[in-house]
Amino acid sequence: MTLKEQITDDMKAAMRAKETAKLGTIRLLTAAMKQKEVDERIELDDGMVLVIIEKMIKQRKDSITQFEAGGRQDLADIEKAELEILSKYMPAALSDEEVQAAVAAAVAETGAVGPQDMRKVIDVLKTRLAGRADMGKVSGLVKAALAK
């Protein structure tokens, strides 16, 4: 079962169970997925769905920070609930050692020798680590590996 099918099944289950918060969040996710498919005239695979979910998770984290800074704990709680629902669709995160091993393998595979080759390495890692590692940290690790 693809991630997209799982999300659709979860939406149906939320409708039957009358879980309005979960249903609303899943509907936002499916709307974002359909928008991407229509805009780019493509069929989403699991990797592309994960990118959409990552983006939505990042938006929720930013919103939580802003709401808490503004003293709106009620809105922050809503965002936290949505964040929890979206996070269930993400694969398990990789450990630091696994990420470092993936970076080393990608550097060796691409034949990268310096900072000018960083883009090649990042492109390889984006597909392999999608949703399983923070790409900001990965970028730093690649930069450090290529600076040696």
Rank of each mutant, 00 (worst) to 15 (best):
E98Q: 15
Q59T: 10
E54D: 15
K61L: 12
I85R: 01
M11R: 15
E68K: 13
Q35R: 12
I26A: 00
K88Y: 03
R16M: 12
G70S: 09
G70E: 15
M33T: 07
I64C: 02
E5Q: 15
G71Y: 04
D45F: 07
I52Q: 00
E84Q: 13
T25W: 05
D10W: 07
D39Q: 14
K22M: 08
M1A: 04
E37D: 01
A13Y: 02
L86T: 05
E79H: 03
E97P: 01
M33N: 03
A17R: 07
E37N: 01
A21G: 10
A31E: 15
V51G: 03
P91N: 06
R72G: 02
D62G: 02
A17F: 00
D46Q: 13
Q6D: 10
I85S: 05
D39E: 15
S63C: 00
A92S: 12
E98V: 02
S63I: 00
I7H: 05
S95P: 03
T30V: 04
M56D: 10
E79P: 01
L23S: 07
K36F: 00
M90I: 03
E98N: 02
E97Y: 05
K58A: 13
E5C: 10
M33F: 07
V49C: 13
G24D: 14
M90T: 05
A69N: 13
A92M: 08
E68S: 09
K88P: 00
K18D: 14
A32W: 00
A21F: 11
I26E: 01
M15C: 08
A21M: 12
L28R: 14
E40V: 02
I7A: 04
G24C: 09
K12W: 03
I64L: 02
L94Y: 09
L86D: 05
I26V: 07
K58S: 08
R72V: 07
M11S: 09
R60I: 00
L50Y: 08
K88V: 01
K58H: 05
A69P: 00
L29M: 12
E68I: 06
R41T: 12
K34D: 14
I26L: 15
A21Q: 11
V99Q: 09
R16V: 14
A92T: 13
K34E: 15
R72H: 11
Q73E: 13
D77E: 11
E19T: 01
L28S: 11
T8S: 14
M11V: 12
I42K: 13
A69D: 13
A93T: 11
Q59F: 06
M90Y: 06
Q35A: 12
E84V: 07
D46Y: 11
D10I: 03
L29R: 04
K12L: 10
K34G: 07
K55G: 15
Q6M: 09
M1F: 01
G47C: 01
D39N: 13
Q59E: 14
E98G: 05
G24F: 06
Y89I: 02
Q66M: 09
K22D: 08
K36Q: 03
M11E: 06
E40H: 10
L94G: 02
I53E: 05
Q66S: 12
I64Y: 02
Q66K: 14
A13N: 06
K22V: 05
D96R: 07
A21R: 14
R16D: 12
L29Y: 03
G70M: 06
